[in-house]
Design a protein around this nucleic acid. Structure first.
Length: 649
RNA sequence: GCCCACGUAGCUCAGCAGGUAGAGCACUUCCUUGGUAAGGAAGAGGUCACCGGUUCAAGUCCGGUCGUGGGCUCCA
């Protein structure tokens, strides 16, 4: 029998073994007793392997323990098997299992069963899982022939497994894993035994189509999560709670920012006064920044002739997202899902010269798109929303600079809203596309060039571009670490062609301009939703609907409070007054719940000294000061768009 | 759109062997004039989402409609 040399990464230890020794055996030799006990799997090269697998060649192996980055995936995948085992134990062999992978925050398993599972069932399943885990049942792997596997799963009535089996490439080994009486077709690897599962929890039930295809069978999905220990599980559950507390739908109602009314319709947003105020501040900022960057503002209608949407191609490739046409004096009109054709119409209103380029037109354009009822979600997915849209008409040689300037503006805007961590994606030519290869190549290079100059690291998404041109997408990360795609910059060779727009070049000949579509925030509605969650409803002073609230302690300061209120207002501060006949505690509590940045408390002391006592929403107090001094503090927050007294958390 | 769950006062929720609704907060009025997260009392407020069915009787059972929530790419 041949010998192989195996060394344990990080330990400097190596040893000779007979080929065919299991990694468990190797580990027990090379690692300390303690380490060996903690080993969940081994990593050889890029491959994660079961401890029960055998080594055939010289190798360097790495121990996978609960602390390894790969551990969570392993734990969760094994937990999924334990769950499937438990479900079959509880509901019988009539349960058909589909797939059960580890996912970003946990794991799931999809089942088909005649009865639907109830939330109470989760408890029963979890209880049974607890028993399986406590038993320390081992996972065993077997490599079987296709025929054996087919026979076995057919015998078990596991038809989904048969289907999966058919998809395994010829030549690839077919492996099955046994866990007690439960057998699953699975690539693995798995934990040595269930005793490694220290913290598992089932979370929710959901429906999911077999293979994500809505034409196929609807299955019942059970989501769960697993962590290396109870503490980390709890931290995860706390994060879920925190996300719930920050849910923009809840805060939107509590802070009276927006509502959605059944009578009006689903996916249609009513901006309440406080929300509308925030929106106005956002829009003002947006417009100012665009004027600064040499954009011009447009306004365009909400409907247009159906013919226009035919020319633009929307009726061909976007019809399912558009609302039905309406008949106006015998002519078909349709609600706009995008603003671009209107901007082209503005372009076409007269002859254009290269001397005007680049033309930069922006619009806060409200569009309407059909979304499936099940997809609607608060402000995040709606049927009517306002895009912070812009279109740039230019020559190919302008492209790189224009993109650079757009990136510059985008990052500035995002940063101002407190987002300074980005993921950038560059999507290149897909299989089906319009435009010449030269144009694609030149503009893709222009995008790359701009990204490089801006010093932005990006990921390449080959073939993920839209059919009409390459694009850059920017995802922002909020305080909870969730990412949201808002900004997009797209080059378009298609619309200029379809509308046959042109400009007169320096050579006196007509040329076709290139068009760039871009949005920074994407949808004002959605961006507002993201902001609400990002700030947890405690907007920075420049955005806060109410920046300060003046409150008196007793009726004897009503006049003084009125004066303070007036001078703050005159200073341009959004101030409210609470002069009700209530105790100070009560007023503070209310202002606190409204997350108003500054509470101005006025009692006799302040009145006689001509000062104000300021409480921050963080709970801290500032030293008493004159009204002007206080106004200056608030003004500084507003002008710098940065809170000098940020809210914790 | 599909699966599951849910839809009772502005909000959060209770009610249920089917016998014609209840709490807390918010709101209104009165008392209280009180220094940094809820002072006290009284009052008003609901065709129990909508439509239909079963029943002597339905918020409670059945069916449908509308709406809300969790999901529906993360491949054995």
């Amino acid at each position: 029998m041949s010998e192989i040399l195996v060394n344990l990464a990080g330990s400097g230890k190596s040893c000779n073994f007979a080929a065919g020794t299991t990694y468990a055996g190797i580990v027990s030799e090379l690692a300390s007793k303690k380490q060996a006990k903690l080993a969940m799997a081994v990593k050889v090269g890029d491959d994660l392997l079961d401890l029960s697998a055998v080594a055939e060649n010289d190798a360097e192996i790495e121990l996978i323990t609960a602390r390894s980055p790969e551990a969570l995936g392993l734990l969760r995948h094994s937990a999924a098997h334990v769950m499937a085992h438990a479900v079959i134990d509880v509901f019988g062999s009539g349960v058909r299992v589909a797939i059960g992978p580890a996912v970003a925050d946990g794991f799931y398993y999809d089942f088909e069963y005649e009865k639907s599972f109830t939330p109470e069932d989760l408890g029963r399943i979890e209880a049974r899982m607890g028993e399986i885990i406590a038993s320390g049942t081992v996972f065993t792997r077997e490599v079987v022939s296709r025929e054996e596997a087919r026979e076995m799963f057919a015998g078990l009535g596991q038809t989904y497994k048969l289907e999966l089996l058919d998809d395994i490439a010829e030549g690839e080994a077919v492996s099955i894993y046994r866990l007690g009486g439960f057998v699953d077709l699975c690539r693995g690897p798995h934990l040595p035994h269930t005793g490694f599962l220290k913290a598992v929890k089932l979370l929710k039930l959901a429906g999911a189509y077999w293979r994500g295809d809505e034409k196929r069978q609807m299955l019942q999905r059970i989501y769960g999560t697993a962590f290396a220990n109870a503490k980390e599980l709890k931290a995860h559950l706390d994060r879920i709670e925190e996300a719930k507390r920050r849910d923009h739908r809840r805060l939107g109602r509590e802070l009276e920012l927006f509502t959605i009314d059944d009578q009006v319709g689903p996916g249609l947003i009513l901006w309440q006064p406080r929300g509308a105020l925030v929106r106005r501040v956002i829009e003002d900022f947006w417009r100012d920044e665009h004027y600064r960057c040499d954009y011009e503002l447009l306004f365009t209608p909400h409907i247009a002739r159906r013919d226009m949407w035919k020319t633009s191609g929307h009726l061909d490739f976007y019809a399912e997202n558009m609302y039905a046409p309406m008949d106006i004096d015998g002519v078909g009109f349709q609600l706009k899902p995008m603003n671009c054709p209107f901007h082209i119409a503005v372009y076409n209103s007269r002859k254009r010269s290269y001397r005007e380029f680049p033309i930069r037109w922006c619009e806060l354009g409200t569009v309407y798109r059909y979304e499936k009822t099940g997809a609607l979600h608060g402000l995040m997915r709606v049927r009517g929303f306002t895009q912070d849209d812009a279109h740039i008409f230019c020559r190919p040689d302008h492209l790189a600079d224009e993109i650079y300037n757009i990136l510059d503006l985008t990052l500035h805007v995002l940063k101002t809203f407190g987002f300074d961590s980005y993921e950038v994606y560059l999507s290149t030519r897909p299989e089906k596309y319009v435009g010449s290869d030269e144009n694609w190549q030149a503009s893709t290079e222009a995008l790359q060039d701009a990204l490089d100059r801006k010093g932005l690291a990006y990921e390449l998404d080959p073939g993920e571009g839209v059919f009409y041109g390459p694009k850059i997408d920017i995802k922002i990360k909020d305080v909870l670490g969730r990412s949201w795609q808002c900004s997009t910059i797209q080059v378009d060779f298609n619309l200029p062609e379809r509308f046959d727009i042109s400009y007169t070049g320096a050579d006196g000949v007509e040329h076709q301009p290139i068009m760039i579509h871009r949005a920074l925030m994407g949808s004002l509605e959605r961006f507002f939703g993201i902001l609400i969650e990002h700030y947890g409803g405690a907007f920075p002073v420049w955005l806060a609907p109410a920046q300060a609230v003046v409150m008196n302690i007793t009726d004897s300061q009503i006049d003084y409070a009125g004066e303070v209120y007036k001078s703050l207002r005159a200073a341009g501060i959004r101030v409210e007054k609470d002069l009700r006949n209530e105790k100070l505690n009560y007023k503070i509590r209310e202002a606190q719940l409204k997350k108003i940045p500054y509470m101005v408390v006025l009692g006799d002391r302040e009145k006689y000294e001509g000062k104000v006592a300021v409480r921050l929403r963080s709970g801290k107090n500032l030293d008493p000061m004159g009204v002007e001094a206080f106004a200056a503090i608030v003004k500084r927050d507003i002008e710098t768009r940065t809170d000098f007294h940020p809210v914790q958390g």
